[in-house]
Design a protein around this nucleic acid. Structure first.
Length: 285
DNA sequence: CACCAGGAAGCAT
DNA sequence: ATGCTTCATGGT
């Protein structure tokens, strides 16, 4: 068990960070967050400015939660109006975690036209069936499956993981990733728009999923994923002439360009704060 | 039973 | 380029 004390400039809210839906492999049990990152089973809790954890060292935890990123400065840079200001006050301390590219890509292929609990279920089922077993501080856990393991999976077994029509997309992506082990570093080396196009070459990865992977795994903080909630919020708050509930490709393009211009190079943080401040009780209409 | 959920592909216009 | 349909699943 390790404890670190956060510095004054390391504003951090563990609960907000892990419950906002960016990563799918954490759950809170009896005051502790338990999760799997890479091949580590981690247990962590926060008491004021102290972080206590097991299953990983301080450097790993610091890197995963990007604790050395200057969050106060980022929030100042995106704080452009009362609406985002309220979201920042409500969610201050929320950080984007640094996910692994393959897991993030596969997870967001599983996230189309569905909700977060269902994605968690799919990812957990895939890990239990195809992932490496890990002995951690909370019994046996399972790493997210390597591309090879999912590429070799038979389609019926994958469908048992409740992937539905997404099973073929995951298998195809897994086959590509196992044949091109350097796919992630090649994407990481590209400029933003080219990296985005590269991700959208995967079947099952459209604009939204690509932007999520760019933001959550590749550190492209200008990425601005537009899901149904963000579409609704942006239409109500910033672009009132947007009509309809369905987000056409042209609307998607307009929203993300607006966000990049308006919020700046950390537009992705603005997206996450707006999304998380939407309020769990808020109903559509 | 209808409707929705961190969408995207496949076609027809 | 834009619009409609379908896709599989679980929750409400």
């Amino acid at each position: 068990m390790t404890t670190i004390t956060l510095r004054h400039d390391q504003s951090f809210d563990l609960d907000g960070t892990l419950s906002c839906g960016q990563a799918f492999r954490w759950e809170k049990l009896e005051g502790w967050w338990q999760g799997v990152v890479d091949d580590r089973a981690i247990r962590i809790r926060q008491d004021a400015n102290r972080l206590t954890f097991a299953g990983a060292d301080a450097e790993f935890v610091c890197n995963y939660f990007q604790l050395d990123q200057d969050l106060p400065a980022i929030l100042t840079s995106i704080d452009r109006d009362p609406a985002i200001g309220a979201a920042i006050r409500e969610c201050r301390g929320l950080r984007l975690v640094r996910q692994q590219p393959w897991e993030c890509l596969a997870s967001y292929i599983c996230a189309t036209n569905t909700n977060i609990p269902a994605v968690k279920r799919r990812v957990t089922l895939m890990a239990e069936r195809y992932g490496k077993a890990i002995n951690g501080p909370f019994g046996t856990a399972y790493a997210f499956p390597e591309p090879e393991a999912l590429a070799a999976a038979c389609c019926a077994d994958l469908r048992d993981c409740k992937l539905g029509y997404r099973a073929d997309y995951v298998r195809e992506a897994a086959a590509f990733a196992s044949e091109h082990p350097d796919w992630a570093e090649r994407v990481a080396a590209l400029p933003f728009e080219e990296a985005r196009q590269a991700l959208m070459q995967f079947r099952g990865v459209g604009p939204k999923a690509a932007d999520c992977v760019l933001l959550f795994a590749f550190g492209f903080f200008e990425a601005f994923p537009v899901d149904v909630w963000i579409h609704r919020i942006v239409a109500e708050t910033y672009l009132p002439d947007l009509t309809g509930k369905n987000c056409t490709p042209a609307q998607y393009e307009r929203i993300r360009r607006f966000a990049r211009d308006y919020f700046g190079q950390y537009a992705g943080y603005a997206q996450e704060y707006l999304y998380c401040a939407r309020g769990p009780a808020r109903r559509p209409q």
